[in-house]
Write a protein that binds this DNA or RNA. Sequence first.
DNA 1: TTGGACATGTAAGCCGTTACATGATTAC
DNA 2: GTAATCATGTAACGGCTTACATGTCCAA
Lengths: 185, 185
Amino acid sequence: MEGIKTYKENKTRYALLGILTVCECTGYDMKKIMENSLLYFWSESFGQIYPTLKKMEEERLVKSKEQVVGQKTRYLYSITPLGKKVLQDWLALPPAPEVIRNELLLKLFFSQPRDRQTVLEHLARQKQRVIENLEVFTATRQQVSSAKDPSQLFRVLTLEYGLRTLRAELDWLEYAEQRIADLCL
Amino acid sequence: MEGIKTYKENKTRYALLGILTVCECTGYDMKKIMENSLLYFWSESFGQIYPTLKKMEEERLVKSKEQVVGQKTRYLYSITPLGKKVLQDWLALPPAPEVIRNELLLKLFFSQPRDRQTVLEHLARQKQRVIENLEVFTATRQQVSSAKDPSQLFRVLTLEYGLRTLRAELDWLEYAEQRIADLCL
DNA sequence: TTGGACATGTAAGCCGTTACATGATTAC
DNA sequence: GTAATCATGTAACGGCTTACATGTCCAA
């Protein structure tokens, strides 16, 4: 039974290939790009990035250019035509349903009214995070949406997704805090 | 440097302990409970569940009762006082920020206007899933929220979270479809 | 009688993070 | 000078899914 894909596919390669369609950059840069701004919906660790880049170079999906600056060496990666094709093929495949795991909700679900102080603290911490993310997203949209370039539409849409789900979460957090406060009356 | 927790903690045990605070049940039941209705925000595979239950029994967090029905043997698990304490301690710890990975958004982000047909198909498929989930959640809320039991508050809140974020996602999906349709004009 | 749900379990093997290791460069 | 950032990489190790394996019970 050769040829049957028996294991869940690793998506790291596609995230990296995708970034390389936007710009030539180093592994380090790719991490930054994921952390900052737009790729809030994806993350990778260096422990994944560097070995994956090596493998992809062997497979001719990317190529690297050694850059020596002073004493320092860095590797600028770029995508090959084969890499572009592999990425395109993957983009056309239906995304797998997401496996959702939400630790905050799990804790909430198993908490009792007597735990409400800790629950409120968990909610407050989460609210802080959501507000910070919302600020970043709002600022980013200001910059991006002014450019009416249709080639940017899909990127604007991912940002919009982030904004809307974060706002829904913030609303819920405030609703939840209120409902818990009502318990004490 | 003994005693330093060097690796990301496994949360399977807490999900299982939590379920056991609600009812005595088998590993098989626990999987069903996660799949159905309320635990939509958590999932585990049998490959995790059964070995974890074994380990937890050794650690005296749970105990099992062998039930022989006809030719069939099943193991009914229940939580011990130690298990309750371990769960309580975990509930009080601040949840770690979630690592978000959204394959649909990743694909969207790297798609170009020429790919809009496939993107629309991806969105339609996702919309179908969201609508189905919304129906389940709405039906569940009808049953649950009629019970005004304050001990159920946190569970109702997790359901409410699901409803609100799903609705936000549905709104976004429709908005996105509209924006993409506008491209063709 | 046959398919689906109930029920338990193991092994293979990739996934992914964390920790470790190393060193240059830049900004304060 | 010194801390933060740039920059690359490896090893350990648990996480987790998938596939495999086995068998019962019940309903159509």
